[in-house]
Amino acid sequence: MELVLSAAIGVLSGSGIWLILRPRTFQVITGLCLLSYAVNIFIFAMGRLTVGKPPIMPKGGFVNTANYADPLPQALVLTAIVISFATTALFLVVMIASKGLTGTDHVDGSEPTK
């Protein structure tokens, strides 16, 4: 499981970084999305990998924490997803405005002169 997860994080962030460095705004935004997926999975993995364990503990009495998944990274991931979703949406709006104002989808607002 560790191998699959780390491979997924690696592939996602690698392709994300490559796309961010591309000159077209659509590539950049796709890259940011992929990168944020990679980061979200990474946060999740930082709570240690467990299978079939609930994150919510019963109230009162002795609780053996070994039987439960760490709930905090899951809460963090939830927040991170919401925030990156919102900012990506905002970025999309700016991207469209830039395309409308400059007539090109190059990140610098003008085609490079050859």
Binding site: I20, L32, T87, V94
Partner: peptide
Amino acid sequence: RVRAGLHYIA
């Protein structure tokens, strides 16, 4: 501003 904003946000 839109161009600078694009870079800033990215």
